[in-house]
Amino acid sequence: MLDRTVEKLISDHSFVNYCLSKNEEDSAYWNQWLAQHPEQIDVAEEARRMVLLLVDRPTEEEFQMERARLLNHIMGRGKTVKPRVRRLWKPAVAAATLLFMGVISYQVWMHRQDSHLVTSSNIEWVAQHVPDKKMMHVALADGTLVKLFPGSNFSYPETFLDSVREVRLDGGGFFEVQHDEDIPFVIHTAELSVRVLGTSFNLQAYDTDNQTKVALFHGKVLIAHNGQEKYLSPGQAYVWDKNTQSGQIESFDVAQERQVSDGLLVFDHAGYDEVARQITRKYGVKWKTDVPVKIQFSGTIDQESLQDVLNHLTYTTDYRFTLQQNTVHVQQN
């Protein structure tokens, strides 16, 4: 019998199953194998330990979500909630749902700092990444509330300066900015900056998207863009198109825009790239296609299942959208 190396064993699916006691068949096989090859016990033991070391790690997403959840809890301003201590663990209670249980206060430090906006040396910047499929609430030091959309990166200072409240967003969010006439609130995005005076609005400014959009619900905002400044009034949206390098102020559907902050996706003659990007953020899927996909999709996606969404795309375009193992395959009809 040829020697097995540690790497070979770890690469062997059935061996990993054995280490994790996944099924009887693999366990039986490897127990027998070890009985027959006592000289391999050390190698197998090393491989087994390495498998456990690799498997028993939190994923990056798990770590981030848990970290945010803890911070959410301990930074909860004024309100101390006892952690849920239960005698009987019920796996049905997903840990993630806790995160959204109407918790208002929310503050997060990240080890990976985004510091290019630091204007005072003593202030710590906090960077928060929102995984696909998730929304996150953040409460800033001044009481401003931000609901971040999936796939966003948001950085903000632990405390604000006396002169200006600055944050940075690559992504989307619903902002309810604490009113303070003397200290403007400024959101920097890749394309433009939004200057705010106590107001609420949606901002969609993913670095990878063609479109940057500010939709104002209440109050007033000033948009600084390419050296120009534009005021928005409630009900108005500023939309910038990176491709055509043109921006315009338009009116928007307030009720629909409100739903955007609850996860509604809105498409208006959207091309394939945009559709794929947005669906990826919301549903966390990958895409695969061998043909150039030319679609123009208009419509909304709310709480539908991914399968319904793909069916809808299939019915309304010349392509077939099928889901296999978390990847959407697009084929021409």
């Binding site: 456990l52 498997v55 939190p58 809890h73 301990i74 201590v85 796996p91």
Partner: peptide, 27 residues
Amino acid sequence: YTPLFHYGMTIRRDRELVKESLHILFC
């Protein structure tokens, strides 16, 4: 966090339980 997670999994191989326990621990 990661070493504790690993240790928790050796006591009980249940990711959700270990995460919950770690949450309680740090709270």
